[in-house]
Design a protein around this nucleic acid. Structure first.
Lengths: 216, 216
DNA sequence: AGAATTGTTGGACGGTTGCGCAATAGCGGG
DNA sequence: CCCGCTATTGCGCAACCGTCCAACAATTCT
């Protein structure tokens, strides 16, 4: 394989790793799979990453942070707290039925066994909560939303979203993703003292490129 | 090892499997571990269970159903819908920080790859929802609770509980279990049109025997 | 130009896995 | 008491795992 600079090679390894992770799941991702995806030898991966845990954590961070950034960008485009809240749901709704949510399930389960992955997963979750908490705090400040603890409200809304998407992804059609989306919006209206229908979809976003692949 | 009747042996295998599952996690449970736990050969396990997926699903069903039954029994002791709702939370609160919740995380993540486990996990989740939905429907019928869709409300409450306990179990002290418990009760009050403080703990239950063990 | 550096290879190592199968051991019926 | 049935063993198989390392090759420095 062509020789690369360390920076390029590390990048290529991470990209290959997250491709395998999406296909096989975190727990089943193996050094040899990554090497095959990359078209190189397995020894090369250990030349750049001292352990599998470290590599998995970095690849997970990459993919999870991309989703977060997408939502951050979408939310930033909103002109009012209410619009930002709607945009938050719009962006999340597209992500939760993706392979992206399965990766989160893997990460939460594996966190107990992989220290580096746990730190990353936890940090990312806290950033999601912080993003939402800021929107809610703004909404309270401007008087459109009502809660005595924006921080707690953000954790509740986020946990509800996680719990509902979890059912969609893990159990197939026990719930539809439309139901999960609509129900979480309704509960959020109640949570923040908004009148029903306030948090309906803001605008239709272009369909995301599906990264999910068939189980192998 | 002493010869057993098929029924006894199957039972013994399931018991040994769930012991290993609690210790090591679902994904890391191996045939040889189960055999060692049982004090028999690994070949014996395959004489009774044709695949690992099947065995894991049955063991998971056993442990998860025990938790469910415990909650069913506790709820049945309530005299009113409101009291039953409180008892539901009391029992769930004890289970969610147990190793029991980690097993659920494992199951949700593994569901995508293990068909038998997915069916079991899904079925159990639906039973939890049905239990809660019935309490809520009763509450609506007797006028103490208010929701236009008890089924949807039950899914929301359950998903919020799952999402919050998930944070507690996967990420350690990002949230305390007391917070998760209190927050889910508050959100449920809002969800069902109850006045704040209605769903406080009903009674103190005896501490459950901890089955969690140190990571190995 | 040659030398030093370092990205890359490919396989060895010691371990693991799920599963299958011939041989054995123990029990119940005749 | 012995025979047939079957629970149980113990090991083999083929594949897999993360990690390591000596050798090779491509680049850069002198």
């Amino acid at each position: 394989m062509a020789r690369m600079s360390p920076a390029e090679r590390r990048e290529a390894i991470v990209v290959a790793t997250l491709a395998v992770m999406q296909r096989r799941g975190i727990a089943a991702t193996t050094v040899r799979d990554v090497a095959a995806e990359l078209g190189t030898s397995s020894g090369l991966i250990h030349h750049y990453y001292s352990s599998m845990d470290e590599l998995l954590a970095e690849a997970f961070e990459r993919i999870a942070r991309a989703d977060l950034q997408e939502t951050v960008a979408a939310v930033a485009a909103g002109d009012s707290p209410l619009e930002r809240l709607r945009l938050f749901f719009d962006t999340y709704a597209r992500a939760d039925t993706d392979a992206g949510m399965q990766i989160w399930l893997d990460a939460w389960a594996e966190a107990a066994r992989r220290p580096a992955l746990q730190r990353t997963s936890r940090r990312l979750n806290e950033e999601w909560q912080a993003l939402l908490a800021e929107v809610i705090a703004d909404g309270c400040a401007s008087g459109v939303m009502t809660t005595d603890d924006p921080d707690a409200a953000a954790w509740r809304v986020l946990s509800l979203l996680d719990g509902l998407s979890l059912q969609v992804v893990a159990h197939g059609d026990v719930l539809s993703d439309e139901q999960a989306d609509a129900w979480s919006r309704e509960a959020t209206e109640r949570e923040l003292g908004l009148s029903p229908g306030t948090v309906l979809p803001q605008r239709v976003l272009p369909p995301r490129v599906l990264t999910r692949s068939v189980a192998e």
